[in-house]
Structure formats: C-alpha cells, structure tokens
Design a protein around this nucleic acid. Structure first.
Lengths: 337, 337
DNA sequence: CTGTTAGCGCCTTCAA
DNA sequence: TTGAAGGCGCTAACAG
C-alpha cells in the first residue's frame, strides 16, 4: 500500500482526500463534503457509506482547505503578556479551554519587546483567524482598523481603549477599589494606601483610582505608592516604603504583587498582621498558608465565557456598536486582612 | 472604495489577493508569490514593484492557501496539562516563544479528562501541523502511529515511552536524585525521604528512584512517601506524615509540591529549618522569601531549544531513529536546605 | 528572471 | 438528495 522505495517505513505522507473516499464509497466528492458538514443535506444512508469508507481509509477533512473556501478559519489568536503572574496563566487556560470547547483553536502569542502586540496581531491576519483576544498591553489603534477591514473581531480583557467595533471585558474595578477601603477600615486599619503600577495597566489604574476616590469620600487620605511593574519583586520593595510611611492597611492591585508585599513585611519583622493587606485576583498562592491573602476573586471561567460571547456575537454582527461586559468580583476574606 | 450598501462602514471583508497585486504591479501572480517567498528567484526590481503595490492595497499572503500547496502549515501543537504548576507555565511560554521565533505558530491545547491528549492530537491532524509537542500525560501509542503515517513529528517532554520516530527531551533525573541525597546529607540530615506522585509522571518516578538508589548505595534507608498528585495540596498533606516518621531531610520531586511541604511544616510549628527540604524546577516561588527553597534548576530555554531542534531535524529526516536529549540540571542552594 | 499552466483539498452554486 | 462544475488563494513545474 505504501508509495515506493521499500526502505522499511518510507514516508511521503500519502494523504487521503475526499476524492479517495468518494470513490471508495461510490459517491461524489460533494457527498463526502456534505457528510462531514453539520446540518448539510445528505441522506443517512450515504452519510454512513461515507463514514465507513472514511474510517477504512483513515480520512480526515483538511480544515485548512476548508477555511480557504469558508474564508474563515477556526483559529483565534490569544495575545498574552506577563505570564509570570499566575493569574494570567489561569486566564489563559480558561480561555483556551473555552475556545476549544466551542471548536476554535487558540493560537498562543506571548508578547514582549521584540514581538509587540501589533506585530503579532498583524501576523495573525495571515491566517483568516476568527478573532483575536488580547490580554497583553493594548495594541496601537491602527491595528484595530486593520482588523476591522479584514472583518476580524477583537476582544480586549481589562483594557481601557474605547474604539469602534472593539469589544471589551473588564473586571468590576470600582467595586474592588471601594470594597477594599471599606474592608480595611472594618479590620481596624487607620492609615491606608494603595500600591499600583504607574500607568502600566488599565485595571490597575482603575482600581487605584476607585480606592482613592472612596477614601476621599470618607475624608481620609490614602497615598498611591507607585511601582514600575505589578509584580512580586516590586511588591517586596514597596513594603519598605509602606512601613516608612506608617501605613497599616494597603490594597495591592494584584495578588502577585501582594505576595511580595507580605514577604517584604515579614522580612522587616512585621509579618504579625499589624499591617493589613488586600490583593486582587485570588491566585492559587493567595490561599497558600504562607500568605492567606484577603483578595478579590475575579472568576476566569465567567470572564472567558464573556469574552467568547462577545467574539461570537460580533462575528454575526460585525457592525454592532462596541460593547463592554463587566466581570463581577467577590471579596475573599483571609488572614491578611 | 467600499463594496456597496452605504451603512457607514459596511463589512464584507473584500480581501485583496495576489491577483490584485499582480495587476497593480504589472506582473504575474507567480511573481508576487516569489516576492514573498524567502530566497526565491526574483529581481530586486520586480520585488520592489510588488512590495509597493502590496503595501498600497494592504495585501497579505494567505498562509492557509500557501499551506495547501506546501502540504504543511506553520502550526505546531502544544499539548499541555497541569498548568497550575508554575513550572509548566514557564515551559509553555518558552516553547511558544521559541516556536514563534522560528516562525511557527503554537496551537495551545490544554488537556483534561474530557479532552485527553489522544483526542486533541487527533484534532491537530486536520491542520497539517508541522509537529506536536507533548507536555501532558503521554498519549496512547496508537496516536504515534497515526502521526507517523501523516508524517507529523512528535516530541515528548519528560516522558518515558520509547516509541519509533518519537523523540524525547528529558531532564537529568538521575543527577537530581543523586545530588539531592548528597546535599541533604551534607546539610546534616540523617533520616531521608522522598515525596513523589504514585506513577503519575515519568520524571517524578525517575527522580524518586534515583534518590532511593543513591540512598541504598550509601547504606541508608529512605522511604518513598507517595501522593496522588505532585501539587501544593498534597505536599502540604505529606508534611504531616513526614513529621510522624521523624524525617529530617526530604526531596520533593517538584517545587510546586515542595511549597506545600514547607507550609505544612510551618503550620506544624516546624518551620525552623529542622527539616531540610529540596525541590525541583526552580519555579519563581522557590525564590520567594516565604520559601527560599533549595532546588534544581531545569532551564526552560535550553529545553525549548532542544525540543525544537528535535522537531526540525525530524522534519528533514522523518525516518531517523528516535532520539533522547537530556536537559541538564543545576542545584540552587537556598535556605530550605 | 518571468509568465503560463496545473493543481493543492474542499465547498458551493446549479441543475437534475 | 445528489452530481457536475467552478473557484477559494497560492505555489510548483515548466517553458521561454
């Protein structure tokens, strides 16, 4: 059955096509195509004949060829950055699973300096992707236009840019900012502060703003402790400043950084709970015994569903007005506050 | 310039093809194709004409159509599981970046009960993938044959199955097992043990075996403390047993679980360093102040390169004998041992 | 170096 | 419901 050249297991991937199946089943190629197309018009009888022949020959529909005629592939770009933050990983995994569950194939595109999101999305446009999901820094707006022109939906997660045809899913940052203040005060904290990356992320900024705005409303002062990046190391460094300033209640805009804050406090001999800490995201480490971090759960599964809903509805209605979905947050109380 | 129906920004993705570019540039479609094919035979002059026209029209090569003729796409399947373990995330990110750097597109496929690796790899075969990288549980062997038939290279990471045409990259588990013993003894531990998932992972098992074999060689006893899964929770639970058994030096086959062990010890009031702990992988958390875990670094970047080397060399030599590459490990000494 | 000619594997009208 | 025919966008093989 193998091609030629009897070197044991010669290659030359002799692929079987719909033509082969058609011949074997005694039907036309169109019939084969229909048999493998959901709700196409085929009799059960031919369908079975086709399936039978297909199985015997080891036939698989070539989805790439299919997308050529369909003008749309099953691929969805997943543009991500900061995967060292465990929350990002969770998001990624949930998105990937949710996509696969709906028969999409996620193309993973980690961003960095060399490969920024714009370049990367540009690349995606070569594959007739069904959509693009962005968790990294928001790309420059010109890329949105390109996508719009090619009819490729984009969904941004926790980003701020308001742009025609670009949908977004954002977590309820005002809620977390406000609640953080209230809870810190409830636990007895007097001198509050918030740690957040300087203009690094939309959600980060919004949480910090909400926190401060709530404080202002209550007539208390609450400085922003700026850091370069919202990560463990910078959280750790911020802990010192915190102590210098006499803060006893702090909101770290994500857990990843909050872990650093807690460790920094512990290192300075203040791991006794005298400084209350609230994080955000409820990453696995937040419930680890070393931290037991009070935090806001931001359910990735819900978020993923929201994202995909936006994606699919935009596919059917490309010209719809841009929408924003809010992911609810829930305060999880633990030892740290 | 837009199609019809003047509803402001009407859609109907009017894609521009090589035909359009050819016409605009006054050349043939083949010329256009060549202009976009690395080291194809085109004069600089036509190439420029083509680029010019392409830019004006906003042309992009349709890679899907290209793969149709090439019979091979740029896609590489990334089959992964256990992404809650931060080391897995690191692997994933490095693999993805390494692939993209070489102009492959990683398709992310997280596995689980519903979507086991076999099913998932089967799906991939519809896309003429250039290869498959497996970090999850090894798939059943029949899938290897299917891939071999279709000429799709597979590389397994830290898996044991020895199968024709299937290459593997494995970390130097014997080395870590041996070194763990020696280092624990050096730091003064007397009663050793190793914690490992029961038949859950190849590397896990191999590390444990090496550990015990070294102990036997030194004439000391070293029980295996079995757990269901090598994760934080089970590490935490294992800590109790450890103390019951009077162990004072333990090798946890991965860091993720080791963090649980350390937390379990701390919770039992034995976070004083009286029980030495060594982990494996050097995940970010291992260097967090709460843990300062002595561990083995297993460089993801090296591993990723090894994987891709195997992948690409098998593409050119599909019938080569299966190879195994070893990833070196390095002991990183920290507070925990 | 360039254009022409055939497909790659599939899907979608269109008649029957 | 079925088959025939044409085309999706691109590239490889072959002249010139």
């Amino acid at each position: 059955m193998r091609p030629k050249e009897g070197n044991g297991l010669s290659r030359e991937p002799r692929r079987v096509t719909s033509f082969d199946v058609a011949r074997a089943a005694g039907v036309s190629r169109a019939a084969v195509s229909r048999a493998f197309t959901p709700d196409a018009s085929v009799s059960e009888k031919t369908r079975q004949k086709v399936y039978q022949a297909a199985k015997e020959l080891g036939y698989r529909v070539n989805y790439l060829a299919r997308s050529l005629t369909n003008k749309r592939s099953d691929f969805v770009g997943l543009v991500a950055a900061g995967l060292d933050n465990p929350y990002r990983t969770q998001q990624l995994e949930h998105l990937a699973r949710a996509l696969i569950a709906r028969n999409y194939r996620p193309i993973l595109l980690p961003t960095s300096k060399e490969a920024d999101s714009a370049t990367v999305i540009g690349q995606l446009l070569h594959y007739s992707v069904s959509g693009v999901i962005v968790t990294s820094d928001a790309p420059p707006s010109h890329i949105f236009e390109e996508c719009a022109v090619e009819g490729v939906p984009i969904v941004l997660i926790n980003k701020g840019e308001d742009f025609p045809f670009v949908d977004r899913v954002v977590s309820d940052d005002r809620m977390s900012g406000y609640t953080a203040v209230d809870h810190l005060i409830e636990t007895g904290a007097k001198r509050l502060a918030v740690i957040a990356g300087k203009a690094v992320s939309y959600s980060s900024r919004r949480r910090a703003e909400a926190f401060q705005s709530r404080c202002t409303g209550l007539g208390i002062e609450a400085p922003l402790i700026p850091v370069a990046i919202n990560d463990y190391r910078h959280g750790h460094e911020a802990a010192e400043k915190l102590l210098d300033m006499g803060i006893d209640g702090v909101f770290s805009v994500n857990d990843y950084m909050a872990c650093g804050v807690l460790d920094g406090l512990a290192k300075a001999g203040r791991g006794d709970g005298s400084v209350k800490v609230i994080g955000h995201d409820d990453i696995p480490q937040a419930s680890w015994i070393a931290y037991e971090l009070t935090t806001f759960q931001q359910p990735c599964d819900v978020q993923a569903e929201q994202v995909i809903d936006l994606l699919t509805s935009r596919m059917s209605e490309p010209d719809a007005v841009a929408r924003v979905e809010f992911t609810p947050v829930t305060l999880i109380k633990r030892r740290s506050a």
